[in-house]
Design a protein around this nucleic acid. Sequence first.
DNA 1: ATTTTTGTTAACCATCTAGTTAAATCACTT
DNA 2: AAGTGATTTAACTAGATGGTTAACAAAAAT
Lengths: 201, 201
Amino acid sequence: MKKDLSTEEKILTAAKKVFLTRGMDGARMQDIADEAGINKALLHYYFRSKDQLFEKIFQEVAHAFIPKIFAILESESTLFEKIERFCSEYISQIITTPYVPIFILNEINRQPQAFLKKVFGTNRPPVEKLIPQIQKEIKAGILKPVDPLQLLMNTLSLCLFPFVVSPMIQLVTGMNTKEFNALMEKRKKEVPKMIIDSIKK
Amino acid sequence: MKKDLSTEEKILTAAKKVFLTRGMDGARMQDIADEAGINKALLHYYFRSKDQLFEKIFQEVAHAFIPKIFAILESESTLFEKIERFCSEYISQIITTPYVPIFILNEINRQPQAFLKKVFGTNRPPVEKLIPQIQKEIKAGILKPVDPLQLLMNTLSLCLFPFVVSPMIQLVTGMNTKEFNALMEKRKKEVPKMIIDSIKK
DNA sequence: ATTTTTGTTAACCATCTAGTTAAATCACTT
DNA sequence: AAGTGATTTAACTAGATGGTTAACAAAAAT
């Protein structure tokens, strides 16, 4: 049973592009077919329904995006090292896939419970392991007494939000994408510095 | 729905709710009619098309949301005062309209240039006036040498982003909306403190 | 009281869109 | 060359959706 992956690959690439830029509701199967250079019926031959195709793309995108958040946070480094690595590596990755954050945010808002289940299954997002470390470092006098949840929110906010408003930033400042990315490159050091300064004793 | 309200008000209230939670593409005219407790034809009697109705809601929402950002920043206060007032007042407002940020972000991404034109007309967003102040305070030795754009991004990120992921936060932590709002209340002081600490000499 | 204007509805229409079908074509085996 | 199954397409269907129409009701104007 030989499979010609090229058509399937073409479809997946096209679907990813269309779903990422237009969202589930805004995407049209015809647009995806056109983008892939094939007939619309062929889409349904490979992926029975729009829902299934979207699901496939969602899984691909979400699993390339979400778990990385937590992999670093679960390593054996110190908190400061984790923050530095997280910001740097995460910003690097998003520069290569700038449409992903808004796509993810929309899914979170469209169906939060389904989103959680699809991304983490029955497990909780592995943040709990981080909290003891923070508390330990507070007791050790390394950190100010800080709410771990606020810390996490600050980190995610500073890394992700600029990408979500990048069209706006580029339009207002007259930057092109390259210049905007250079700005984000700078943030790879500035953001962790700011966060660490705000929590270290 | 309240029966005292005029039909037009009922429609606008319903449309706002549906558009804010589902977005332009996800909203159905029938849903808006149902929400308003009227016939779908009556929608078209009052607002000729979906586009026009959406436009009306967009104007209302955007103009209640965006200019406030800049009003404070243009006042005569010191930079630190501006940052404190901005964070506090903005977070207060968003607590009362939590769906607005994601709605705005989606419009920014859907049609950035149209968004800018609709919100600011031909004028630029009035950020330019802030930059001289920052540069002045840097020369005066009050501030570290800081990129105004990065400062602005940080402020907006820390104020807005948590609301955009609030469904996620509430689900993961098990908070209800009231508890989440209490968390945001705390941020009204913590966020400006963090920002100011990061820039003051 | 009668006409006119405004507000409201049920039924309808046109178009869009996800999804199906049946026939054609290609790749490969015999 | 013919057969076989996988691939691809044009044409089609069913249902959703934005929008219209014509008739009717309520209110305002005369």
